[in-house]
Simulated scan of single mutants.
Amino acid sequence: MNSTIKNRSEILFLYDVSFANPNGDPVDENKPRIDEETGINIVTDVRLKRTIRDYLAEYKGKDVFILETRDKDGKLRTKDDRISDFGSNEDIIEKCIDVRLFGATTAVKDKTMTLTGPVQFGYGRSLHKVNMTYIKGTTVMPSQSGNNQGTFTEKYILPYSLISFYGIVNENAAKNQNIPLTDEDIDLMLEAMWNGTKNLMSNSKMGHMPRFLLQVVMKEKNYQIGELNKRIKFVHDVEDEELRDIKDGKIEIKELVESLNANKDKISAVRYVADERVVFSLNGDVCDIDDVLKGFSVEKLSF
Rank of each mutant, 00 (worst) to 15 (best):
S3E: 14
R8Y: 00
R8D: 02
E10R: 01
F19R: 04
G24L: 02
V27M: 13
D28C: 06
E29M: 06
D35G: 01
L48C: 12
L56C: 02
G61R: 02
D73I: 01
R77Y: 02
S84P: 01
F86T: 05
G87F: 05
G87L: 13
D91M: 08
K95N: 08
F102Q: 03
K109Y: 07
K109A: 09
T114N: 10
L115I: 14
Y123G: 03
M132K: 14
K136E: 15
P142H: 15
G146H: 09
T153H: 13
K155E: 13
I157Y: 03
S161I: 13
S164I: 07
S164F: 04
S164E: 08
G167C: 12
N170Y: 05
K175Q: 12
Q177P: 07
I186T: 11
L190H: 06
L190M: 14
A192R: 11
W194H: 05
G196M: 04
K198S: 00
S202I: 05
M209R: 12
F212D: 04
E241N: 14
E242S: 10
G249W: 03
K254C: 01
N263R: 07
K264V: 00
D265I: 00
R271K: 14
V279A: 12
V279W: 05
F280W: 07
G284Y: 11
C287S: 12
D288M: 04
E299C: 00
